[in-house]
């Protein structure tokens, strides 16, 4: 078991360094595109840690959902908006940054103290060969309600997205309706039931 443990330790060290480094990069980079790409790095290293914990299905799902969908969506938003704004340097900006740093350091200290003090019960059960079946069983027995609620939430957001995307704007009288709220475009009224 000597080699396997060594490999595990080294992999864990590499993945943790990657994870923490990428996460710090997400927060500290001034360029938002770098932050978004590094977020993908965070998700991938997290998937690696899941693999190390014998949760292969969870790690693949992590990559599929977070890297393949969420991160790509964030990147899309950043690249399509593409608004370059030069912020004025704040007066006494260091107070803000300093207080943020103090709060973060305090939070980190608190969490590390908790994680060191807590007597974790380390499971001695040998890992399952396949995590897919137990996960599915949980989904359809004791976690059925949260599972279904999550799917309803997704359905709701999908319907909302479709309604937002299907709005018909009136481009011809854009100039005429300047009395309206400046943030909304004139919309063509639409009957709710299709013809």
């Amino acid at each position: 078991m000597q080699i396997a443990e060594g490999v595990q330790l080294v992999t864990f060290a590499i993945l943790s360094i990657l994870l923490v480094g990428a996460a710090l990069g997400v927060v500290l980079f001034a360029n938002i595109v770098y932050s978004a790409f590094l977020l993908g790095g965070v998700f991938i290293s997290m998937a690696g840690i899941y693999i190390l914990l014998n949760a292969d299905f969870v790690s693949a799902a992590q990559i599929l959902v977070y890297v393949g969908a969420v991160n790509v969506l964030i990147l899309f938003a950043i690249m399509l908006v593409n608004k370059r704004e030069d912020f004025k340097p704040l007066k006494n900006g260091w107070i803000r940054q300093g207080s943020t740093a103090v709060v973060c350091a305090g939070l980190f200290a608190l969490l590390s103290a908790v994680s060191i003090v807590t007597p974790w019960s380390i499971s001695t059960v040998s890992p399952l060969a396949s995590s897919v079946v137990p996960i599915a069983k949980h989904f359809f027995t004791d976690f059925l309600l949260p599972f279904e609620l999550a799917s309803i939430l997704l359905l709701m957001s999908m319907v909302g997205a479709i309604i937002l995307a299907r709005r018909d704007f009136l481009p011809d009288n854009l100039g005429a309706t300047s009395t309206q709220d400046s943030l909304t475009l004139p919309e063509r009224p639409r009957e709710l039931v299709g013809k």
Binding site: F37, G40, I44, D56, F57, A60, A61, I63, L64, V67, G68, A69, N71, V72, L75, F76, M79, A129, S130, S131, V132
Partner: peptide, 21 residues
């Protein structure tokens, strides 16, 4: 591995990030 085909789908979802990059 037990997640075989699922791993392929997951991996192929990384490609768009490279393309965007």
């Amino acid at each position: 591995i037990n997640t075989g085909i699922f791993l392929w789908i997951a991996l192929s979802s990384i490609v768009p990030i490279g393309l965007l990059m």
